[in-house]
Simulated scan of single mutants.
Amino acid sequence: MLIGAPAIEPVSLAEMKSWLREDASDEDQLIQALIVSARMTLEAYVRRFFVTQSWRIIMDAWPQDKTRLVLPLAPFQNVSAIRVFDAADVAQTVTSNSYRAPASSAEGRIVFSSAPPTPGRCADGIEIDFVVGYGGLAAHTPEPLRRAIMTLAAHWRERRGDDPDDALPYAVAQLASPFRRQRLT
């Protein structure tokens, strides 16, 4: 679950208006909404988050190998907290010196020095808070992804839902494809 949304968008309203060659301000709210929608659509397409944001994963139990855990969101920055709920439903914080979560890994990998505590409740016994994204500034998002956001937002603005086959435009997919994480299925 998202616990800290991005503070900024990878493309500012001023950049988008310049891209669109738009001087008036009567559609600023629409253009801003298109930027957010394009970012979220492309984040889903590439399976990566563009700007720093905080997430929480809630699990019932640890995986089979209790010394390693891979978080499914990328690009990974750090772990903020790991909490395990005991039988009295009280959160016990796992100390950061009992695990490593190297930011240099492409994925969020947590390696425990010893098995973490077993949750005392049968459901939602583990909470892991972590941070993902390329960085906190718009410039940290790779330029092809920023261009893909602008291209997609411009596409939507021009067509305004009139296109019956409104799939991801080819130019947008080409810009984003090199960043796309593949699924292992």
Results as ranks from 00 to 15, higher is better:
residue 157 R to N: 13
residue 15 E to Q: 15
residue 136 G to S: 12
residue 116 P to R: 08
residue 166 D to K: 02
residue 51 V to D: 00
residue 12 S to I: 08
residue 115 A to V: 14
residue 177 S to K: 14
residue 182 Q to K: 09
residue 138 A to S: 15
residue 36 V to H: 08
residue 130 F to N: 00
residue 139 A to T: 07
residue 91 A to N: 09
residue 65 D to N: 15
residue 81 A to K: 11
residue 100 R to W: 10
residue 108 G to S: 01
residue 166 D to G: 04
residue 167 A to K: 08
residue 48 R to V: 01
residue 88 A to S: 15
residue 52 T to P: 04
residue 52 T to K: 09
residue 154 A to H: 00
residue 60 D to I: 10
residue 150 M to L: 06
residue 74 A to V: 02
residue 57 I to M: 08
residue 14 A to S: 05
residue 117 P to F: 01
residue 118 T to V: 09
residue 4 G to I: 03
residue 25 S to F: 04
residue 105 S to T: 13
residue 20 L to Q: 04
residue 124 D to C: 12
residue 172 V to C: 01
residue 31 I to E: 02
residue 74 A to P: 01
residue 86 D to H: 05
residue 131 V to H: 00
residue 112 F to H: 11
residue 172 V to M: 11
residue 116 P to Q: 04
residue 113 S to P: 04
residue 124 D to Q: 12
residue 75 P to K: 02
residue 127 E to W: 11
residue 165 D to S: 07
residue 68 R to G: 00
residue 174 Q to L: 14
residue 120 G to V: 01
residue 106 A to C: 01
residue 57 I to G: 02
residue 98 S to L: 11
residue 57 I to E: 09
residue 152 L to F: 10
residue 84 V to K: 12
residue 131 V to L: 10
residue 161 G to V: 12
residue 177 S to N: 14
residue 70 V to D: 04
residue 122 C to L: 06
residue 117 P to C: 05
residue 4 G to R: 15
residue 156 W to V: 02
residue 128 I to Q: 01
residue 93 T to E: 12
residue 79 V to K: 01
residue 3 I to A: 05
residue 28 D to V: 06
residue 158 E to Q: 01
residue 64 Q to N: 12
residue 149 I to F: 05
residue 81 A to L: 12
residue 95 T to Y: 11
residue 19 W to P: 04
residue 160 R to G: 07
residue 103 A to R: 06
residue 134 Y to F: 15
residue 13 L to D: 07
residue 54 S to H: 10
residue 42 L to T: 03
residue 112 F to L: 10
residue 37 S to Y: 11
residue 4 G to E: 07
residue 71 L to M: 06
residue 33 A to E: 02
residue 41 T to L: 14
residue 150 M to G: 03
residue 185 T to S: 08
residue 87 A to P: 05
residue 174 Q to C: 15
residue 113 S to R: 15
residue 149 I to V: 09
residue 129 D to G: 03
residue 47 R to M: 12
residue 30 L to Q: 04
residue 84 V to W: 00
residue 95 T to G: 11
residue 51 V to M: 07
residue 141 T to C: 15
residue 158 E to T: 04
residue 67 T to C: 01
residue 46 V to M: 10
residue 165 D to N: 08
residue 131 V to Q: 09
residue 54 S to L: 03
residue 126 I to F: 09
residue 170 Y to F: 13
residue 156 W to F: 12
residue 63 P to S: 07
residue 173 A to P: 01
residue 174 Q to Y: 06
residue 4 G to Y: 05
residue 64 Q to W: 15
residue 89 D to C: 12
residue 104 S to V: 08
residue 142 P to D: 08
residue 69 L to Q: 00
residue 7 A to C: 07
residue 25 S to E: 05
residue 14 A to Y: 05
residue 107 E to P: 03
residue 129 D to L: 02
residue 119 P to Q: 03
residue 84 V to F: 11
residue 153 A to W: 06
residue 104 S to F: 07
residue 166 D to F: 05
residue 19 W to M: 03
residue 63 P to D: 00
residue 10 P to L: 11
residue 145 L to E: 06
residue 168 L to V: 08
residue 96 S to G: 08
residue 170 Y to D: 14
residue 168 L to Y: 10
residue 151 T to E: 10
residue 116 P to G: 11
residue 114 S to E: 15
residue 145 L to W: 02
residue 12 S to Y: 08
residue 40 M to D: 14
residue 105 S to A: 12
